[in-house]
Measured scan of single mutants.
Amino acid sequence: MAAGGDHGSPDSYRSPLASRYASPEMCFVFSDRYKFRTWRQLWLWLAEAEQTLGLPITDEQIQEMKSNLENIDFKMAAEEEKRLRHDVMAHVHTFGHCCPKAAGIIHLGATSCYVGDNTDLIILRNALDLLLPKLARVISRLADFAKERASLPTLGFTHFQPAQLTTVGKRCCLWIQDLCMDLQNLKRVRDDLRFRGVKGTTGTQASFLQLFEGDDHKVEQLDKMVTEKAGFKRAFIITGQTYTRKVDIEVLSVLASLGASVHKICTDIRLLANLKEMEEPFEKQQIGSSAMPYKRNPMRSERCCSLARHLMTLVMDPLQTASVQWFERTLDDSANRRICLAEAFLTADTILNTLQNISEGLVVYPKVIERRIRQELPFMATENIIMAMVKAGGSRQDCHEKIRVLSQQAASVVKQEGGDNDLIERIQVDAYFSPIHSQLDHLLDPSSFTGRASQQVQRFLEEEVYPLLKPYESVMKVKAELCL
């Protein structure tokens, strides 16, 4: 049975990233139509530049190519590739079939990587351009969430054990800070992308030097003109047959890092959902379990974690691919890159769409948070109580021993009897502590235990987050809708 299948058929496997999760716009960027249309555009740009620099290419040939950029006979191309065992030459023939007058000058002087690699770089750039505003929107939604809850005390956790208090907004800023680093890295790697350009079979530009009869300047002009037509500021000066596969490492490393950030955020949300302090959106008709109707599973956060793990592992592909590119190139890269580049971007696209949807509907339960604080705060307040007693004339050592005994009794009630923490009640009825009984409410005010959390939130948002989001103001209103 021949390899390949009808990918629109229910009898043929289709990647869930495309069929179930990723956005239509990201799927289109990695589609065959987008790819092969870009090949034709690159052939047109090459012909236009070659004509401008004096090669015998007519206006009629150029116009014929322009008129057929979208006229792609995919069936013919597939048949040609089956016959020739070469995808680029299959599309040269297919393009030439609908451009008979231009057929002889299509791909003039070029090698397969002229269309293959340059198209990949265009796709990487455009895919990054799709991700950047999506990530900015996630940051914006979380920034709104953090600002609104900047002063809401909550129990902090280290080692997932109760620690000092923080605020809900401050905790959210930990998430935002990681995503801001990801946004900066995505922008950097996007701006650092260079075009492969017009380089020939081993990167020496020998074929173009021959076409222009040894004119170095025209060869350099050709490279520059096509690079500018493709919208790049610069091209690699040095290439082998391909652009260095280190570029793929750079791009997928940034995406993998984004995956790590999203995994951490969504894990926190899942843990908070278990504590009943916070939940992701839950639709009115949504079913959490087929057997347990009360369940409210954090399905979206779980999906993000599941896909983020996949995204983090994909960076190993370009690392290994770059390491086995012998001399000017081997074909070890080809099949692998067809999979890992598309999957990385479709996965990143999915987790950003999902995280935006989550961040637009996060639900906080202040009463649950308050109750958990009441359970733990008495123990945390013991040092403040000791200091207040010393100020009232008591002995630190005597007070410490009193607190120690009462704390152990209260802990026994919590752990052995399943009761509430009654340390404060014990202190309130103990005559030894009568000098500070009137101060206990103040000493137990949760806001006095959150330090500068709310001020940190305000400063972080104003100095770091809002300036970073400013270039994306025009796209901030787009909502994230999930079908599944």
Score class of each variant (00 low, 15 high):
5 G>A: 08
11 D>Q: 08
23 S>D: 14
28 F>D: 09
30 F>C: 08
33 R>F: 09
44 L>H: 07
46 L>G: 02
48 E>K: 03
50 E>A: 07
52 T>E: 15
58 T>L: 12
58 T>Q: 13
60 E>T: 12
64 E>Y: 07
71 N>W: 10
73 D>S: 09
81 E>Y: 00
82 K>V: 15
84 L>N: 09
86 H>Q: 06
86 H>E: 00
90 A>M: 00
92 V>L: 06
93 H>D: 11
93 H>L: 08
97 H>R: 13
99 C>S: 12
110 A>N: 00
111 T>F: 00
115 V>M: 05
119 T>Y: 10
120 D>N: 07
121 L>K: 08
139 I>A: 08
146 A>D: 00
151 S>K: 14
151 S>R: 11
154 T>V: 08
159 H>S: 02
185 N>W: 08
195 F>M: 14
200 G>D: 00
203 G>M: 00
204 T>I: 01
206 A>S: 05
208 F>L: 13
231 G>A: 10
233 K>V: 11
236 F>G: 02
241 Q>D: 00
244 T>P: 14
246 K>Y: 05
250 E>Q: 07
257 S>N: 07
258 L>T: 09
260 A>R: 03
261 S>D: 05
264 K>C: 06
269 I>R: 06
273 A>W: 02
279 E>T: 07
287 I>Y: 00
288 G>Y: 07
291 A>Q: 03
293 P>R: 03
294 Y>C: 02
303 R>E: 02
307 L>W: 04
308 A>Q: 05
315 V>Y: 09
315 V>P: 11
316 M>F: 08
316 M>V: 10
319 L>D: 04
320 Q>I: 12
321 T>N: 09
321 T>L: 10
326 W>N: 06
332 D>G: 04
338 R>A: 01
342 A>G: 12
343 E>V: 06
347 T>R: 06
364 V>P: 08
366 P>G: 09
370 E>V: 07
375 Q>R: 03
377 L>M: 07
381 A>V: 13
382 T>Q: 08
384 N>I: 12
393 G>R: 05
397 Q>M: 05
404 R>T: 05
405 V>M: 15
405 V>H: 13
407 S>E: 11
407 S>M: 01
412 S>I: 15
414 V>L: 06
416 Q>L: 12
424 I>Y: 14
426 R>G: 04
429 V>T: 15
433 F>V: 05
441 D>Y: 07
450 T>M: 05
451 G>L: 02
451 G>A: 10
452 R>N: 10
453 A>W: 03
457 V>W: 06
458 Q>T: 13
463 E>A: 10
463 E>P: 04
464 E>S: 06
469 L>Q: 02
471 P>F: 15
475 V>T: 12
477 K>P: 15
481 E>V: 10
481 E>Q: 15
484 L>S: 15
